[in-house]
Simulated assay, not measured.
Amino acid sequence: MVHTTLEYQNDPWLKNLESYLKQHHPQFNSTVALVSDLSNASGFFSRDIRLAQNFPVYESFRVEPVNRDAFDKTQMFNVMVHQISNTFLHPQWSGLSKGAYFRPEVRYHYIKLILECLRTQFRSAEDGVIGYYSVYHKRHDPRLAHILDPETIATLTEARELFGTVEIPELDIIRILKSSMLVHLGFEGTEVSTEEMLERLNQRSLESQHILPSYRYALLCLMFSLGEEREGQQAYLQLFSTILRRMDTTHLIAVKDDLHILTDNTWSEHLTLHNDAFRELLKTVILLRRDYVRQWRRQVTGEDKIPDLYNDLLPAKG
């Protein structure tokens, strides 16, 4: 973390610090946060910043501490959607051109997504779960049993800490997503039918037509469809399109002219995680996320000026 003022954020040393660290210390996945005002920060963003705030790489002045407890169950749901997006819209997965918003390796996002699925099962501050290391120590907790076994949790934790040196097991990522999202969608049990899930997603999406919840519930419909046979997949995709048709289009810029691709629901080919039909659909989904990110960052960071993090993340030509 770097504490500095807006004036010095254009300093060449600071602007190139992250690339310098990655070049000279490739064994670490370095992220540099240039911080000037965190008074409006909230969610997991504020919590993670608060944990690192006392140990900055460079500090020119002290900033007010961020409230690391400024997150709740809603924020846990939102961060899950964030990790899903980072994984499946990653250039190496989606086939899109390179983007600055992602880590170089999609497998790193894949590991983080699964660990986040586990971390967000602990929804009370009394659980004492902070980082992914907390998940490791809780790996025998019965709340995780329907998602992953303790041995695999230990392997994934090690794989994140020693990225690139630990072999990652092949897992049913869609099953993991569905299982982990049950608690976030208000289900008490660990077994839910497709009909029950569709009804719950539809109910939640009706609460607001703003782009933030609309994107989140539509994305879940799209991802959950990948674990279904044709009839079940079509039901999820129909709801995916319905949610986006109901969405308020006021804040749409990037996807405005192409939204019909997502709302017409004319896909004939069965979608799977790795086929061309899914990748083709993602070219438009990522434009929707571009609009979503603008609104989401305003909510999470409190910034009035929203950086366009997707400038170089456009659908690949040809």
Rank of each mutant, 00 (worst) to 15 (best):
H3G: 02
H3I: 02
Q9K: 12
W13E: 11
K15H: 11
N16H: 14
L17E: 14
H24P: 02
V32P: 12
D37Q: 08
S39V: 00
F45A: 06
R47V: 00
R47K: 11
I49Y: 14
Q53S: 10
Q53C: 01
F55H: 10
V57H: 11
F61Q: 14
V63Q: 15
V66I: 13
R68F: 05
A70E: 12
F71W: 13
F71G: 01
D72I: 02
K73T: 12
K73V: 07
V79Y: 13
M80H: 14
H82W: 14
Q83G: 01
S85E: 15
T87E: 15
L89A: 05
S94Q: 11
G95V: 01
G95N: 08
G95K: 07
G95Q: 08
S97E: 12
K98P: 02
G99N: 07
E105K: 06
H109S: 09
E116M: 13
A125W: 08
G131D: 12
Y133S: 03
Y133R: 00
V135D: 08
K138R: 04
K138I: 01
K138Q: 14
I147D: 11
D149F: 03
P150A: 04
E151W: 04
E151I: 02
I153M: 09
T155M: 07
T155G: 02
E158T: 04
E161T: 00
L162Q: 09
F163V: 00
F163P: 01
P169T: 08
D172L: 05
I173G: 03
I174M: 14
K178W: 06
M181A: 11
V183S: 14
H184L: 08
G186W: 10
G186C: 09
F187P: 03
E188H: 10
G189H: 10
T194A: 14
T194W: 09
L198P: 09
E199I: 01
R200S: 11
N202E: 15
N202V: 00
Q203G: 02
L206A: 10
S208K: 02
L212A: 05
L219P: 02
L222P: 03
G227M: 12
E228T: 02
G232Q: 08
Q233T: 03
Q234L: 09
Y236F: 15
L237K: 07
L239H: 06
F240R: 04
R245A: 06
R245Y: 08
R245F: 07
T250A: 14
H251N: 12
I253G: 06
L259E: 12
L262C: 05
T266D: 15
S268M: 09
N275R: 07
D276K: 01
D276L: 03
T284H: 13
I286D: 14
R290K: 10
V293P: 00
Q295H: 07
R297N: 09
Q299M: 11
G302A: 05
E303G: 00
E303F: 03
D304E: 08
I306E: 12
I306N: 06
L309V: 00
Y310L: 05
N311A: 05
D312G: 01
A316S: 11
K317I: 02
K317S: 05
K317T: 01
K317M: 06
G318L: 08
